[in-house]
Amino acid sequence: MTTGIDLLLPDPCYDVPTPRGAFGTDQVCLDLRLFSMSENTLIPVNARRATHVKPRFGSSPEECCVTGHDGVVTLRPFLRKLTQLVQLQSGDADAVELLQFKIAQVARQRDAIARGETVSYLYVVLEGWAARYSLRPDGTRRITGFLLPGDFCGIHAVCHAPMDHAIVALTDCTLAKIELTQVEALVSDSPIIGRALWYAKLIDEAILRTWLLNSSDAVRTLAHLLCELDARLHHGTEIEAGPRRFDLPITQEQIGDALGLTSVHINRCFRHLREAGLVDIGQGRLTIPDVEALRKAAAFDPTYLHWRGDGSGRR
């Protein structure tokens, strides 16, 4: 498998290791060959191996792991996402793992895809959190979806249509860029994967509809969003007695942009949930003492996420 890597660096350099802490990791070792770039320009660089050590962002070590045992970057988060949606055969999984792709490292608060851009790649989040967003006429931002490891964007490329929204990295992100021609060939050879891609987009729409329906009660809306993120990050994990903890590497302002609330209002809602003993948050980690209690308070029903085996009748 051949991969490429896009890096944003200020000066031309040769085989220079990435500084500690860059791109959401404590250490990134890149086996690079000779390359050069101009200031503030993304230039494809041929690379074979990338070993990520102790990632800072993500929900768990498994979801942050984007390398195989031999150190080669893989599409494992994407494959895991597809298997949540449909029953893949071994040949389908092999086809996904054999896809060629480039790696793009996007720093937090930078756009990975701009509104109006016509993309020729399917972008898959391998590491970090990103979001879809649009700007209102007054310049304020509305987030319309969170992208977690395994999620993808840029499906507009299928219709050769410009993006009607933008994608921003909420944390330092590692993205895989898969050329549209490969995606089209994959779907042609494996229709079940095409079905999974469209299921994923239908789920995106269902999530957005649910956000809109919950907008009448700020505290319940926040509780529902936290339940949704917990369900997405822990799909396939049984709810056990005792607290559940996971990284929540997004700010109250970003949560407010998603729910149509100010960061001050989000802070009040968090305080209300904390005083009720439903959540606790500190140092970028969310603790849910009792998942079922939070779900009950939020009136959360995960069936709108339409995962395989969720009782919705879809396979």
Rank of each mutant, 00 (worst) to 15 (best):
P149L: 01
E205G: 01
I193K: 00
G116R: 05
V124P: 15
F152I: 00
D204S: 05
L175D: 02
A206V: 02
T144V: 06
F152M: 00
G150E: 00
S190R: 14
C153M: 02
S190T: 09
K201H: 02
R136C: 11
L135A: 15
Y123K: 02
D164I: 07
K177P: 00
W129C: 07
L148M: 08
T144D: 14
E179I: 05
L122K: 06
L147A: 02
T144L: 04
R195N: 14
A114V: 03
L122A: 03
R115L: 09
A169I: 08
T118D: 00
E127Y: 14
A196P: 15
A166T: 11
A166H: 15
D189K: 10
G128R: 05
E205K: 04
L148Y: 06
G139M: 10
D172R: 11
L186F: 13
I167Q: 07
D189C: 08
A206L: 08
A131L: 05
R142D: 03
D204W: 04
G128I: 01
A166F: 13
R141D: 01
A114W: 13
G150H: 08
I192P: 14
V158M: 12
I113L: 10
A131I: 04
L135G: 14
L148H: 06
S190D: 11
A161F: 15
G145I: 01
F152N: 03
E127W: 14
L175M: 11
W198N: 03
G145W: 02
L147W: 07
T118P: 12
R132W: 10
R136I: 00
P137L: 10
G154S: 03
E205N: 03
C173F: 11
V183H: 08
L148P: 13
L180N: 07
T118E: 02
Q182E: 15
Y133M: 06
A157C: 08
S188E: 15
C159E: 04
Y133D: 04
M163Y: 14
L147R: 09
Y123F: 09
V183F: 13
I143K: 07
V168C: 09
E179H: 12
T118F: 06
A169M: 12
Y199K: 08
T181F: 11
L180V: 05
C173I: 03
Q182R: 09
V124W: 15
V187S: 10
D151L: 02
Q182D: 13
W129E: 11
L126P: 03
Y199G: 01
L180K: 06
I207P: 05
Y199I: 07
S190V: 10
T171M: 05
G154F: 07
D151G: 07
L170N: 03
L175H: 13
R132H: 14
Y123R: 05
I192T: 12
R132E: 12
T118K: 10
P191C: 12
V168I: 10
I207Y: 10
D189G: 09
R142C: 06
R136A: 13
T171L: 04
